[in-house]
Design a protein around this nucleic acid. Structure first.
Length: 610
DNA sequence: CTAGGGTTAG
């Protein structure tokens, strides 16, 4: 074969990644003595990178007798594509020193992209300075990537400044700057720019919508998506769909999620990995774990994200056994778990009281899978130990870990002390927390309850004083219920709802039946200093109860009632919902701020751990 | 032969 034919092969290789062909060509190159052709070697390096065979690319790069700027650009691109931007940045000095090369526009672009990928703003500015001093300082492509870098580092105004200096703006530079404003939450600026853009194509819509999802403007993202569909934009690329499925998940909009799913099928993207993963997560977050499982089991191709999404779904829905079984299956299929997988696993063990399994998993995380535990892992692990009553071991976790324990971590330990009646330890830890100036309202409630139970009224007063001084106030709680296309939001204590009277009557009826069955209101969760009766009245108007009552009035008997809540369910509401599910023989599913509760026949899927 | 925008799990 002629060199040109090899070239053609390599190009095909890069376009349609196939590691087999790349390796075979590599071997042929050596056999035929063509391994000194710089052009072919660079091509091959590029092909390995594009096939995702990073290790082959790295080996080859290390062994190349001569490396030019093209080799460097291909090498840096391979690292960027493999999501290892820091490695790209740390390799760069070698180019200057060992290979005595000055970066060209291609290499500069790679470096900027590496800074963007690792959020290295300082380094990014240095590269920017190098670029301005170089003879390539007119290059619009480098400028485009600088726009993206500043956008990703959260400084959209700097992105804008570079954008303004681009002489010929194209759809890529417009997209980068729009996305920068959208993702930092500067909504009107982003919209303004997208109006000003000469072309509104799928990419600019995607930048806007994804940016909004990333900055938490899920509702705006949904509206924009609907507008985009109305404008008849052809969805020739599925990425916007995974974004919007994500916002359905964040908002727990099951109905819209189903519609988008139908769109996905109609557009022929249901075998796309990103989309399928997003769908698994969406159904799980909309508390329809059955459908999540269904999507997962029909997937032809699954990666670690697919497995982890479902695993965490099972864990949060209180199905620890399924989560653990999924993990075993995953490992036996040769999928390597990552740090997120272990969060889900330890969480699952923690909520099912599987101490030994959790301890083994935590150990195997480092020893078998080489993953260094983060603070979040330690928090999960501490939760497992303390919930199950291994309080000394839990406290040892805090002392032995390489992180400073934060307020939620101490609070988790403290609440377990209380649960297990370890008064002395509880007071010791409370004093410690109080000294370190807590901020979370729920911590104050916990502290005050503990001191009150021990009769330490001086300390109770101290907590109260600190609380007032810091103006600690609970966020207003609200609950949403979706009935068909209509949805209703209820706020705690709401008294001006049009159906207030009917709701009140029903709640009163339910309460007297509950009291007959032994219900006693648990007012420990009430922050305010007031009479018992007043506290009970406050609980009576908690938003989830209003939403459930409304649901009972408005829905067909026997159907599942789904509630989405912004805060965690309080102890008393949890008890109430268990009673109600039994009295009215209805399944009630509540998604709270951290997990899911399936109330049925008087019990909850969370096993009263939340 | 090498470079730029939009993507899923906690």
């Amino acid at each position: 074969m002629l060199i040109s034919q090899y070239l053609h092969h390599f190009k095909l290789c890069s376009k349609h990644p196939s590691p087999q062909t790349a390796r075979a060509l590599h071997a042929r190159l050596f056999k035929l003595g063509l391994s000194h052709s710089q052009l072919l070697l660079n091509c091959l390096l590029d092909a390995y990178g594009k096939c995702g065979h990073l290790q082959d690319a790295l080996n080859m790069f290390d062994q190349m007798p001569h490396r030019d700027l093209i080799s460097w650009a291909s090498f840096l691109t391979a690292l960027n594509q493999a999501n290892r931007p820091r490695q790209a940045l740390s390799a760069f000095p070698t180019m200057l020193v060992l290979d005595a090369l000055r970066p060209d526009n291609f290499v500069l672009t790679c470096l900027v992209r590496a800074c963007a990928g690792s959020c290295e703003l300082r380094m990014g500015k240095q590269v920017h300075a190098q670029f301005l001093l170089s003879r390539f300082n007119d290059d619009d492509i480098v400028k485009s990537s600088l726009v993206d870098m500043y956008a990703k580092c959260g400084v959209p105004n700097d992105a804008r400044a570079v954008f303004d200096s681009i002489s010929v703006k194209n759809s890529i530079s417009w997209t980068a700057v729009i996305s920068g404003f959208a993702r930092t939450g500067l909504k009107s600026k982003a919209l303004e720019l997208s109006q000003a853009a000469p072309v509104r194509n799928l990419f600019s819509w995607t930048a806007l919508i994804s940016g909004f999802v990333q900055s938490g403007n899920n509702i705006d993202a949904v509206h924009l998506f609907i507008e985009m569909r109305r404008e008849g934009i052809d969805i020739v690329d599925p990425l916007v769909l995974s974004s919007i499925v994500g916002s359905c998940a964040n908002l727990a909009l099951l109905e819209l999620g189903r519609q988008v799913h139908a769109n996905v099928i109609a557009l022929g993207y249901n075998s796309c990995l990103f989309i399928a993963n997003a769908l698994v997560d969406m159904y799980a977050k909309c508390s329809d774990i059955i459908s999540a499982n269904g999507i997962f089991s029909r997937m032809q191709l699954r990666d670690v994200v697919s497995w982890t999404s479902l695993l965490i779904g099972f864990a949060q829905h209180g199905r620890a056994k399924e989560a653990l079984a999924l993990f075993d299956e995953m490992v036996s299929e040769g999928i390597k778990p990552n740090e997120v997988t272990f969060i889900g696993l330890i969480y699952a063990c923690s909520h099912a009281g599987l101490v030994d399994r959790g301890r083994d998993l935590f150990k195997s995380m480092t020893e078998e899978f080489g993953i260094k535990p983060s603070l979040q892992h330690y928090t999960c692990f501490l939760d497992l130990m303390s919930r199950s009553g291994h309080l000394d071991e839990a406290e040892r976790v805090i002392h032995d870990m390489p992180f400073q324990a934060d307020e939620p971590m101490w609070a988790a330990l403290l609440s377990a002390c209380k649960q297990h009646g370890k008064t002395k330890m509880a007071i010791r830890i409370s004093d410690r927390i109080l000294d370190s100036r807590p901020e979370d309202p729920s911590t104050f409630i916990l502290l005050s309850n503990i001191y009150a139970a021990a009769g330490l009224w001086d300390s109770v007063a101290k907590v109260r004083k600190l609380m007032t001084a810091m103006e600690v106030r609970k966020k207003p709680g609200f609950s949403r219920i979706d009935i068909g296309k209509e949805n209703q939001v209820f706020y705690a204590g709401e008294t001006n709802h049009p159906m207030k009277d009917e709701i009140l009557v029903l709640l009163k009826e339910l309460e007297s039946e509950m009291r007959r069955r032994g219900y006693v209101p648990d007012t420990r969760g009430v922050l305010h200093d007031m009479e018992q009766q007043e506290k009970e009245r406050l609980l009576f108007w908690h938003s989830e109860r209003l939403a459930v009552a409304y649901g009972l009035i408005k829905t067909v008997p026997g159907s599942v009632i789904r509630i989405v809540k912004n805060l965690r369910v309080c102890v008393d509401c949890h008890t109430v919902l268990k009673f109600v599910s039994d009295i009215v023989k209805r399944e009630i599913v509540v998604r709270d701020a951290t997990r899911y509760h399936h109330f049925k026949d008087g019990t909850c899927s969370c096993n009263d751990f939340w």
